[in-house]
Amino acid sequence: MGHPVRNVHRRTIPASPGAVGAVLDTLASPGDLLWPWEEWPPVRFDRPLQPGAAGGHGPIRYTVELYRPGSELRCTFTGPRGVDGWHRFAVTEGDRPGTSELVHELVVVTSGLARLSWPFAFRALHNALIEDALAKAARHFGSTAPPHRAWTPWVRLLRRLPA
């Protein structure tokens, strides 16, 4: 039996949903304004962003299941082994006029070695990476968020290990 995981990150951005959605639409493109490729393995797909596009970042593999330009991207994991589920980015109206909320949600069931690798390695790396992505999107709209939050010593150590 697997172990369920739900992980959600949110960022309020001072821009319209249409403007923030346009940032989402740049994912995996040469002008990617969302993914922090400057510090992390870039997202690459075998074709432009669309349902059926296969790719991932680093050892994480997935296929685009749903793509609603300007509002939502959902991918189903195909690797690593023992990670069954999906992750998505979504853009919604913010609580205040003129703002949007950019959300990343991961819902998986881990099994086998992933029951250990998620809590001891991948969770910390995932959290740092997604916070960096949300900060990058916010900086596009004038936020003074740093390029990344201060990575924990554990994240810094994990990033130094060979892949």
Rank of each mutant, 00 (worst) to 15 (best):
V23I: 15
V109Y: 06
D84W: 02
E39R: 10
L73C: 08
A22G: 14
V155Q: 10
F77W: 03
L66R: 11
G98E: 06
E72S: 12
Y67D: 03
P41L: 12
T63R: 11
T152R: 15
G79M: 01
I13A: 09
F77R: 00
N7K: 14
P80C: 03
G82A: 09
R61A: 06
R139V: 03
G112F: 02
P147C: 13
E101S: 07
L161A: 06
L34H: 07
T76A: 12
R11L: 10
F45H: 10
R47M: 11
H57K: 08
S100K: 06
K136R: 15
N7E: 15
L125K: 09
G82F: 04
T78I: 00
H3K: 10
R61Y: 00
R139G: 05
T12W: 14
L106S: 00
A114I: 05
S71H: 11
E105I: 04
E65F: 03
R61V: 04
P30V: 12
G2D: 07
Q50I: 03
P41W: 09
A128N: 05
E65G: 04
H140C: 14
D25M: 15
G55Y: 03
G31F: 03
N7W: 09
V23T: 13
L49E: 03
A90N: 02
P48D: 02
G56E: 03
S29M: 11
L49Q: 04
S71G: 12
H57R: 03
A135D: 15
L106R: 02
V8N: 09
S143T: 04
V20K: 08
L34T: 08
H3N: 12
E38G: 12
